[in-house]
Design a protein around this nucleic acid. Structure first.
Lengths: 242, 242
DNA sequence: CAGTGGTCTAGACCACCAT
DNA sequence: TGGTGGTCTAGACCACTGA
């Protein structure tokens, strides 16, 4: 029952039809869409195929299906925004990295606690500078558990993004990344690295990467020059496939 | 073929098994998982049921399926973080709102351009103050196209969040929300509203809500006190169902 | 009780990929 | 060419909802 001329699957066509009706206001927030049986009859397709289309709409947040009742039109989840770090701030191609320092930290209790370690464990601290062209835009500081027999190759230090770095260097598999965005003033040292005046505020982006069971694997703190870096987010990717 | 004792569906069990193997490192990044036919035989279930489990894993970003080849284990998309505005910053229960002003703006070219309007159109400007307990934490300024015959009721002004407000007041259906996060210094007026010193920097969160075909419906700008407000994001919700 | 979505089957044909 | 995932069917039984 696939459309003859088009290569697009039937269930996709069904989902798109309903999406159009929602975006045009024909189907409004709270409305019940036709039952799966009815849609199957309308499109002359089997119920399992209808369900495939329904699933697309539910995944995109356009409808919510309730067992025993039906599928309701819902306002898209515009309160859920996605930050894509691989694209945000500055496009990846323009970015250059410069390694500032690599250290072994010991007896830093606050850091050790954040990484779920005792104070005596060695922690690797990597500091990088991010450039956009010739302009330094951010200082990135990363802290990882010291993992024996897993040297941090310089290529990894220079190019890998943070989750990738953690994945390569740790034995545990990273499964979650938590982020906190805040504002802080630049220290004298940070201002010097960013080639700017001391008094400037900065955007601070802190990430903590976890393995399963909330085991922390690494911490990253980015201090971004306020006029050279922006974080972007959008609700769209969630419904990107439709 | 549903598990007899448990109420959990078989396809969910299959997905969870594979997820455990990935998180334990048994299946590594790039590995091929068994084919759908093999999994069907292993679990003694039909191929369509296997595919339901596979779909869960793909949705969570744990695997990527390639037509004609198979399903590969992939590192979870830790670079994609979700901001949930209904929970971020401060928990919703603690928030109080105070309406500062409602104005009709005309001939503000910059604003009109952002809303896709000519300079002579009326724009509604709503300014609110957000409190956490007795402390003002942020100034929220919203701009919407003036829509005839759709008054902004005061209850909506006080309580609705931004996408909800836009949905209620505009004829077009909102479908996308873009956000830019940056840093700026407080103006004297803003500092006074936030009951703080003038020189402080602030977190600035700007949102633009669009209808289909990139038609802008509304703009919201939140200016947040640096010590009283944080934005949180996490990669986890994307794989929350598993 | 009738109607709904949730799960599951045992097939089928196709498009794509590697060899 | 044989193997893979992508689509689709025409059934079935279940759990949940509401009257």
């Amino acid at each position: 029952m696939r459309s003859r001329e088009n290569l697009i699957p039937v269930y996709y066509r069904l989902a798109d039809d309903i999406k159009q009706q929602i975006e045009a206001g024909v189907l409004k927030d709270g409305d019940l869409i036709p039952t799966e049986a009815q849609l199957g009859e309308q499109y002359a397709i089997s119920r399992m195929t209808v369900r495939q289309g329904i699933a697309l709409l539910a995944e995109a947040g356009l409808i919510a299906t309730v067992k025993g009742k039906g599928s309701f039109v819902t306002r898209p989840r515009l309160n859920q925004l996605v930050i894509d770090l691989t694209n945000s701030g500055v496009s990846k191609e323009q970015l250059r990295y410069k390694l500032v320092s690599v250290n072994l930290v010991r007896n830093n209790l606050e850091l050790a606690h954040e990484l779920g370690l005792s104070g005596e464990t060695n922690i690797i601290a990597v500091k990088r500078l991010l450039f956009k062209g010739q302009l330094p835009v951010a200082i990135e500081e990363k802290f990882l558990r010291y993992q024996k027999g897993k040297p941090l190759l310089e290529t990894q230090l220079e190019y890998a993004d943070f989750p990738e770095l953690v994945a390569k260097h740790q034995d545990s598999v990273p499964v979650r990344n938590d982020m906190v965005i805040s504002v802080a003033a630049l220290s004298a040292e940070q201002a010097k690295l960013l080639e700017t005046e001391e008094v400037l505020p900065a955007l601070v982006v802190k990430q903590v990467i976890y393995a399963k069971e909330d085991k922390p694997l690494g911490v990253s703190i980015m201090v971004c020059h306020k006029d050279r870096f922006e974080l972007k987010a959008t609700s769209y990717p969630l419904s990107g496939r439709l």
